[in-house]
Amino acid sequence: MISEQTREVLTATLPAVEGALDDITPRFYDKMFTKHPELLNDLFNRTNQQIGTQPKVLAGSIAAFARLQLHPDPAQQRFIIDRIAHKHTSLGITADQYAIVHEHLFAAIVEVLGAAVTPEVAAAWDELYWEMANVLITKENELYSQAGVAPGEVWRSVVVAERRQVAPDAVSFSLAATDGAPLPSFTPGQYISVQVPLDDGAHQIRQYSLIGTTDEPVWRISVKLDGEVSTWLHERAFEGDTLTVSTPFGDLALPEGDAPLLLASAGIGCTPVIGLLSHLVSTGDQRPVQVLHADRSRARQPHRGELAALVEQLPNGSLHQWYEKGVDAGDGASIGMMDLEEVPVAPETVALLCGPAGFLGAIRGGLLDKDVPESRIHYETFGPELLRVGGRA
């Protein structure tokens, strides 16, 4: 808990700091990567750095956490901390790295705000930073312990047991332990990080959702051709090749109970949905499950047959699909963007959404319009997410 004095200083200075974050965060990353280039090459997503989305994510997280100290919302704070902590553990982040971030972040704040950063202001924001850092470190150590690994020791080598084309621009990989033993189980909806060695010497990391049932001896992921890591996997990862991957993490989980479920996805966002559906089928789940999926076209939809087959095995499952491009094939799919206006959704429904940020925002808004409470809407986003207080997409 931050002190009352710090709370007063934050109240007075948050608007100024918040207004300057778009200048502070790029300078912070520039300073940190100049001193620690290995972090850009081997830890951070350098594509998101180049296009400017990662600095916005950091800015949003700082502002959201600061606001939550002034106007506490335990559920929203838990959401932010859980989401960041799972991402950090999937990358092998350790407590000592928070000191590196602190050094360069505060140097950037002083550089941008200048004389406005009095000793009192600096002390207040320092206290806020370490409050957030310590909460994250505690949660991350808890996740490491639950996964049965030491902090940061998340990496293992696996072998590509099978490679399968599941769409013109998407490939599915089955990954097996190098010694032939079963890989550890995972929670439906979780993901793994995959680290690949690029030609310029960098080792870039991306996350991919696990599909299939949790008791399989292998892990399955699908990769859409989109970026330098996915290009490497499409062009260089074949049966018998070895990959470096992390322990499974991720906070998108099936809720307990018998409330109706709505699983909505777009594009390659179908992969966590397939993992969730596989578990529902294998456990004989009886609750109503609405599955909604949007894609560019039937021809480019990954796992189209598998998605339909899983829904068909659910005693109370239904599937509705939208295609941005194409013609009516008489199979009940709609042409155009996903639209919830004609979809009946009970207010007690628990919704799990998977896809890019724009899609998540639109579907979340549609669900809120149907009186589904914010607390019953959960999601997994592909790409950086911009956190904000009072909303999740």
Rank of each mutant, 00 (worst) to 15 (best):
L91E: 01
E341V: 07
L225A: 14
F249A: 09
S318K: 00
E374D: 10
V289M: 06
L262D: 04
T6M: 14
A133I: 10
L70A: 05
Q190C: 05
A59K: 06
A346Y: 00
F65H: 12
S230V: 08
Q290Y: 01
T6W: 14
H86C: 02
I274Q: 05
Q54E: 12
V160F: 11
R156E: 00
L277A: 08
Q301E: 14
Q76D: 15
N41L: 14
S172T: 03
A299S: 06
G391D: 13
V17A: 07
P184N: 10
S172G: 10
V281Y: 14
A266D: 05
E341N: 10
G152L: 01
D339N: 11
L14G: 10
V159K: 13
D339H: 03
L70F: 05
D241R: 15
A115W: 04
V311F: 05
F65Q: 04
Y29A: 06
T94G: 01
S172W: 08
Q290A: 10
R206L: 08
G336H: 03
A294G: 12
L310C: 06
P37F: 11
W155F: 06
F65A: 11
A161H: 14
R364F: 01
L10D: 10
K35T: 15
E18S: 11
L261E: 07
T11P: 02
V372W: 01
L292N: 03
S90E: 04
S209D: 10
L292P: 01
T231P: 05
K87C: 01
P248V: 09
F28I: 09
A346I: 00
E127N: 13
A294M: 07
I211V: 10
R300L: 07
G92F: 00
H279E: 15
G269L: 02
N41I: 04
L68A: 07
N141I: 06
D22W: 08
A266H: 03
Q77W: 12
I51S: 06
G148S: 12
S185V: 02
R304C: 11
L310D: 05
L91Y: 11
R236F: 13
R206D: 06
T34L: 13
A64Y: 00
A170R: 13
T94Q: 15
G383N: 07
D215R: 12
V166C: 09
D169V: 13
V223Q: 14
L136K: 03
A95I: 01
T213W: 09
K35R: 15
V350T: 13
G180E: 11
